[in-house]
Design a protein around this nucleic acid. Sequence first.
DNA 1: CTTGAGCTTCCACCTACTGGAAGGTTTAAG
DNA 2: CTTAAACCTTCCAGTAGGTGGAAGCTCAAG
Lengths: 132, 132
Amino acid sequence: MNIGTASDHSGLPPKTIRYYEEIGLIKADRAPNGYRDYSETHLHKLAFLHRARGLGFSIEECRQLLALYEDKSRASGDVKELAEQKLVEIDRKMLELRELKKSLGHLVEHCHGDDRPDCPILDSLAEGLAPQ
Amino acid sequence: MNIGTASDHSGLPPKTIRYYEEIGLIKADRAPNGYRDYSETHLHKLAFLHRARGLGFSIEECRQLLALYEDKSRASGDVKELAEQKLVEIDRKMLELRELKKSLGHLVEHCHGDDRPDCPILDSLAEGLAPQ
DNA sequence: CTTGAGCTTCCACCTACTGGAAGGTTTAAG
DNA sequence: CTTAAACCTTCCAGTAGGTGGAAGCTCAAG
């Protein structure tokens, strides 16, 4: 499948997919005409990259995460350790999202678009910090 | 409080804090000696920025999110709409994190660092895609 | 067989930092 | 008091991760 279709399915712009190939993150096959050719497996990896990057994982982290899915890495105990470390990081991100959501939800509830002058937002922003 | 202390409390490197000031994202007061001076409110915003950036929100999105907490924005109905739109995005990110976690958890469970050649990872990666 | 969409590479530009130099300030030790 | 470490300042260059656009090739439709 061509890069445009792969783009549609993965959510990544063609430019970005080419860039990822350029930096050795994910290499496409080539059709006889020179066009990049993507398989379902490629699609999965691209969609995975889209998700992971959108969640704040760096390219290097994505490279590690992708390595987890490659045969050569699966034989090593380091891999499991890396995955577990990423799981901890994911839990932290989920917690942060919950806090962010709480802050914003608070805003939506209490500052409902009229001229009410009081806003408890900074309080909820303060989550986890010393009180003012 | 000085930039170093603000850095310790917010988790953002001093360089990044200065950069955020340079692009007009968050402006510090100045002490008589010319040093930047941060209040608790500044700290909250910096910690908020740290969280939001780490979760994949762009600088421009962070600028919008910060605007939600400023008086001038609170009088507008657009603000509520923006916040609700961000809430949808946060829910999506949480869902994606759960999927990512499922994939990785699967890996940790089934590929336990020995030489087992079979791995169901690409299946769980395929979450939401057409089957291979 | 031409027109347009889609692909290729290459190069420049953009965003979001990050490192380092050069120099002023504050703190703590001698 | 002074000197050294650990701050802080600005400025400038470099890096990471794309993104836009030009020039040119390819493919499917009319």
